[in-house]
Nucleic acid binder design. Structure first.
Lengths: 222, 222
DNA sequence: GTCTATATCCTGATAGAC
DNA sequence: GTCTATCAGGATATAGAC
């Protein structure tokens, strides 16, 4: 809810793990990572989510990972690289979920419900990682911003394509596909800003409600 | 657009000034501020928007305001107080705009178009201040978070009341008023995250498009 | 590959002259 | 009310032993 203080509860490891874990050679996936590197990434995600990137110290990351400060630098050359790895993996994982959900749907209506509902749920379940990838973007280096932007554009296109399909099939009525896609993504992304675990809305309820709102927004006038 | 690098262009002073300037005794408004205090607030807004609160140094704020670091502390006891003043004034101003727009409308449909369009436009025109109030919230002290939350709740209520009015009058069809209000606010708030001045969408176009999307989301099925 | 120790620099905030 | 000078602590990252 807009009027809720974001939680600073530590991540359960599994919550972020599902979104950054080694990706097993999937196309477009990233490189593998050692157990210690993964542990450091989870610790960094925890710290970045709780305090934001600039306010997070390498000592904090190291101690959460059970290492000395110097131990982190064996696996990651800088704090910024850690942010980049989390951003890249998080974006790639979210994109993969959207692409799969869109491909599995029989109609544009079902596809839209699935991708917006799913994307909203992802930003609830992975709200810590969601905040990092959406709100710490500016702290990436220029090169890394460009790379992450490529992934964001892919996400934009999945949504825009579903809207175009629905317009073509006569299921949807949309004034401007790109503006509508942007607004739908905003709805889902903003979940990461206001979501608190254990509050009134569960991720499953958010998925159902936001999927339905998306369909309402584009349905034809009778 | 989701896929756009946020600008780091310095604020024109007037852009933020309209949203934080001394409020002339309006009910609910804040206390007055000296010229120098306003200049420091504008400098801080510029710096916070460009780099985020924790990454902004008091030296940066001071030099943007044409002062020595020590000169800032005559007017503000801490960096956090500066963030709070910007947050409080920004929230209060946005709330006032919503309340006025809602009061001036003849029907719930017109009210919804006006408040969501206006709120979206506000987050474009004042996107720097918008980013500060929406995304630096966690860096406020606990007491100050509580105070800002009060203003946020007022904003929530303006939207929820308009939706309830429209349901009562038969103009709207809404499954869950609070969820729909939240989603509409998310659409508008997220504008501050992706908006870049000079891009394809103007604040005026955003106002028209998002106002229309809001009405589409709640209109009755024929 | 992890540690202890540290280099080098920067931080928010304050003291006290004017 | 603004300045210069500075305190006391913390930042990222590295050097070198093991």
């Amino acid at each position: 809810m807009l009027s809720t203080v974001p939680s600073t509860t530590p991540l359960t490891e599994s919550a972020v793990l599902a979104a950054i874990a080694p990706e097993g050679g999937r196309p477009g996936g990233g490189t593998d990572a050692s157990d210690t590197a993964v542990r450091i990434m989870l610790a960094a995600a925890d710290a970045f989510a709780a305090n934001g990137f600039p306010a997070t110290t390498t000592r904090d990351i190291a101690s959460r990972a059970g290492l000395s400060p110097a131990g982190v630098y064996v696996h990651f050359a800088s704090k910024e690289i850690l942010l980049f790895e989390l951003s890249r993996r998080g974006h790639a994982r979210a994109r993969d979920l959207l692409v799969e959900a869109s491909r599995d749907a029989a109609t544009a209506t079902e596809a839209l419900r699935a991708i917006i509902g799913g994307f909203s749920r992802w930003h609830a379940e992975h709200h810590q990682l969601g905040r990092i990838v959406q709100f710490e973007f500016r702290h990436l280096s220029e090169d890394h911003q460009v790379e992450v932007l490529g992934l964001r554009k892919e996400i934009d296109h999945v949504v825009a394509d579903v809207l175009s399909d629905g317009v073509a099939s006569g299921e949807f009525e949309v004034d401007d596909v790109r503006t509508t896609a942007l607004a739908l993504l905003s709805m889902a992304i903003d979940v990461a800003r206001w979501y608190v675990p254990g509050a009134r809305r569960t991720p499953e309820a958010i998925e159902a409600e936001y999927g339905e709102l998306a369909v309402r927004l584009v349905r034809r006038t009778g």
